[in-house]
Design a protein around this nucleic acid. Sequence first.
DNA 1: ACATCTTTTATAGTTGCTGTCACACTATCC
DNA 2: GGATAGTGTGACAGCAACTATAAAAGATGT
Lengths: 341, 341
Amino acid sequence: MTATIKDVAKLAGVSISTVSRVINKSKPVSSEVKAKVLEAIDELGYKPNAVARSLVTRRSNLIGVIVTDIGNSYIAQKVRGIEEIGRMYNYDIILSNSYGDPNTEKKFAELLRSKQVEGIILISEIPNREVIEYVEDFKIPFVYLNKYYANPGLPSVSIDHREASYRMTNYLMELGHRDILYLTSYEGEEASLENYKIEGYKKAIANGTEMERRIYPAQGFKVEDGYAIGDEVANFIREDGITAIFCCQDELAIGLINYCYDNGIKVPEDVSICGYGDTKIASIYRPGLTTIKEPYYDMGAVAIRRIVKKLEGGKLERTTTYLPIRVIKRESCKAKDKQLD
Amino acid sequence: MTATIKDVAKLAGVSISTVSRVINKSKPVSSEVKAKVLEAIDELGYKPNAVARSLVTRRSNLIGVIVTDIGNSYIAQKVRGIEEIGRMYNYDIILSNSYGDPNTEKKFAELLRSKQVEGIILISEIPNREVIEYVEDFKIPFVYLNKYYANPGLPSVSIDHREASYRMTNYLMELGHRDILYLTSYEGEEASLENYKIEGYKKAIANGTEMERRIYPAQGFKVEDGYAIGDEVANFIREDGITAIFCCQDELAIGLINYCYDNGIKVPEDVSICGYGDTKIASIYRPGLTTIKEPYYDMGAVAIRRIVKKLEGGKLERTTTYLPIRVIKRESCKAKDKQLD
DNA sequence: ACATCTTTTATAGTTGCTGTCACACTATCC
DNA sequence: GGATAGTGTGACAGCAACTATAAAAGATGT
């Protein structure tokens, strides 16, 4: 029932093409005619039908985004980056929640293609070869966003976790700590990520004089896992003189701090503890958790920029863009000499 | 470059309409012909062009969602509900981040309309009359989702905050508390929400024998505001025998508990403190925060269901659907006689 | 064998918009 | 003054699908 270009043309007493020209400024139109057309547009409240337009121009101005779970705060941040930057270039985004299932991802990719999206961003924990090949086969710009892996040989955006944990370990060393325990958690697909982080830790330790590597695995990386590993960690503190603990996840660190709180070990007075991720709790918790902030918003922003660049005629190289992290210094880590051990 | 229905028809040696019939099962086709067509579709990897289809059918299978900020965890939860349920009915969602600006909301609504979305869900803090009228004028199903207000006289989904705080206050009373302080925070638009919550608190108190209302305002509802109000609250505890504090927001409660932690007041031994919202910190914090859980996912789910129902020929009434809350019992509140006061 | 009814196919017309082409008109040049 | 160039406008053919209608083919009955 809404007005079409035809109605506008009739009301303004001109041809359809002229109206189109006024709307798109695609060719010059005399000012009197233009005025008439604009008036008609205004009167009818006409708005071009984007569907019809995209059928003929073959441009949808739509970017498909497939995520594992928009309910995850860090994914929502990435999506926010995508949305905000995409908007600047006049792209809308269509969102799909795959819950990490490869078949769902494929199905959604297909759906997005049928909707004629101009690009696809896939955010998943684990790069699934089959899904990726399937999507790349569409021959539309495609960027893969992951948290966990190094360059998977395709256009992607990630974080250099080796560098991240190297810098955090260095920070602890700058605080005077010589006995630093790295609390890791091997679990399924996460292992690969952990390997990078452990490498960074080792590299930093290797630079220190007379420092020993101490890597210990928790059963998982949730709050309860951190609490559960407390007894063992307490032993390390007593027996081995550990003064700082680098946890591979914020939640793990929080759980461990909870344990300490319940067992009379003061943080950071007795031991410095840091996390990884800068989840919201990190800033709210007492003591504030020293941690690594991953640039989620920026990851989304860079992903969409790479797609837009390609759509505007640029190149989309099969490389990974690594974004820098930041060590967020809070109260849970203290200079060693200020600890009362 | 992708195959069209024409290519399929040619390869299968039939007409375009026959192919369309096979795809849409709109009219019977002999099984031999059907087999030929399906084979051709498979061979060409043909997928119908949704844009062309929606131009002629006038159905886009798209729902527009305008949110203030997808980066907010509770909004992301709502969106997750919308996406997941929408998906079940074969709707995709287009996401727009307004950051709460009414003009941006209007602009996005317009954009969505031009994209021929079949329905719009608006999630905002404050219902803006102008925006709402503008969107309703589109004559497509529209549902408003808000956190803060009672029935705004249009199709919406919300929470009965009066009931919520009534139930929380009752819970505290069941624990034996007679001197319960409600820590509110008047601030701009939030005030209206607070009024409902305060009403619920008052209603519960009125049911108690010899109980006094005690309502005190903080300067805001962030962690730092909770900490800042600590001195005054401590006074209430000492002077007025307050044994439980109902904070209007989780963050405020956490800030207050932080203050207590820093000032030798034990929670929940000396005082019970509860929050409102069940943000992630509530479960991770030590002590676990007793709080009210708002059904964000369900709100999104109900909103999209109402739209789908309308699109399937049902009615969309100008009423508010109120979703039930839950009191989440954790360690920050304890029975009064077990407190050592 | 012819008429009638049913099933299947082909044709043409839509959807709303863009882009190419052609035409009419004006301005400029030798 | 006629050729040349430049401008503004309209007609029309797509874009890729769906749909109504008409036509053809096949089945049934007398």
